[in-house]
Computed example of a mutant assay.
Amino acid sequence: MDEIVTITDTVGLPNQMIDLSKIIYTIRGKQVMLDSDLAILYGYEVKRLNEQVKNNINRFPEDFMFHMTKEEVKDLRSKFSTANINPKSRSLPHVFTEQGIYMLATVLNGEIAEKQSIFIMRAFREMRHFIMNNERMFERINSIELKQLEYQKESEEKFNKIFDYIADHKEDNQKIFFDGQIYDAFSLLTDIVGQAKREIVLIDGYIDVITLNILAKKNVGIHVFAYTLPSARISAQDINSFNAQYPTLTVKRTTAFHDRFLIIDGVHGYHIGSSLKDAGKKCFGINKIESVDVLKDIMSKAQQTGV
């Protein structure tokens, strides 16, 4: 049985103070949150939250969400008597990893879910900082989990060096993100999207609802032209829902591109090493494209092949 641990930093949420660190646990070597705690944060009943998950189960692979076993539930209760698990429930709790929590926000309706997901991801980031600064607390964790924490520390240190450098070299045209830095990659991409004054062109073969969450950070009145593969998991309903709140989005299908490109107002372009929906899950880079002629060629190719 994996040892279950928490941290003690406090994260502030709008209109209230909730100690998220006390409801983030480590189970099976992964940092997770219980469905019951997430239901409170997102303003849902547990039953309704899990119904939404069931209706979108293809979006929740095992590294995003899994059922606890009876042994894990028993172990959690023995170590944390305040764990929010209903002893009368016949169902075993779902737990969600950081990626699963972000995906959960995309299938739940309401502004609360969207805002709270950002604060929760910040809490996960603070947790990684805590792990880095408190190694001795984890000496009793089994060797597999300890290796994972050491890897997180190494990634965090590399990440901090990169962003210290970026802070001192704001005009650099390359940025690197290390695996696990989902919130920070999300922040940079939304900053780029927010710079658009006229239009956004996105070429990404695997556009889905996570991608739409990034595009939703655009300014009002900005038109988005998105080009993706025919097999991309973005439905007409997803597009219509987006347009109802953040008009307007036009999605076309094309097989002409392998790489991902984000072009702002036809003059600022970025070559992105990861699909936007996966940004931060693995190490990837973002490179600025200086040539406006190259950007015009890319947009022309997209317009010619998109259907």
Rank of each mutant, 00 (worst) to 15 (best):
E72C: 01
V73A: 04
D75F: 01
L76W: 05
R77W: 05
K79I: 12
F80G: 11
F80H: 12
S81T: 11
S81E: 09
T82M: 10
T82C: 06
N84F: 00
I85N: 04
N86P: 10
N86W: 08
P87T: 00
P87F: 00
K88I: 08
R90T: 10
R90E: 02
R90Y: 00
H94R: 14
F96I: 13
F96T: 05
Q99G: 05
Q99R: 12
G100P: 07
G100T: 05
G100A: 06
G100D: 04
I101N: 03
Y102S: 06
Y102E: 12
Y102T: 08
A105W: 09
A105E: 05
T106H: 07
V107H: 02
V107T: 08
L108D: 00
L108M: 15
N109K: 11
G110S: 06
G110N: 09
A113P: 15
A113V: 06
K115Q: 13
Q116I: 14
S117V: 09
I118V: 11
I118L: 14
I120A: 03
I120M: 04
M121T: 04
R122Y: 05
R122C: 01
F124S: 07
R125K: 15
R128T: 12
R128E: 07
H129T: 11
N133A: 14
N133V: 01
F138G: 05
F138V: 07
F138D: 10
R140K: 14
R140G: 12
R140D: 15
R140Y: 11
N142F: 03
I144K: 09
L149S: 05
E150M: 05
Y151D: 13
Q152K: 12
K153P: 01
E154F: 13
E156T: 05
E157H: 05
K158D: 03
K158I: 06
N160F: 14
N160K: 15
N160P: 07
K161V: 06
I162Q: 14
I166G: 00
I166T: 07
A167M: 09
H169M: 03
H169L: 03
D172I: 12
N173H: 04
N173T: 12
Q174D: 02
Q174T: 08
F177Y: 13
F178C: 07
D179Y: 04
D179E: 14
G180I: 00
Y183Q: 13
Y183H: 06
Y183F: 06
D184W: 08
A185Q: 00
A185N: 01
F186D: 13
D191G: 02
V193S: 08
G194K: 14
Q195F: 00
K197G: 13
K197A: 02
R198I: 09
E199L: 00
I200E: 01
I200A: 00
V201Y: 15
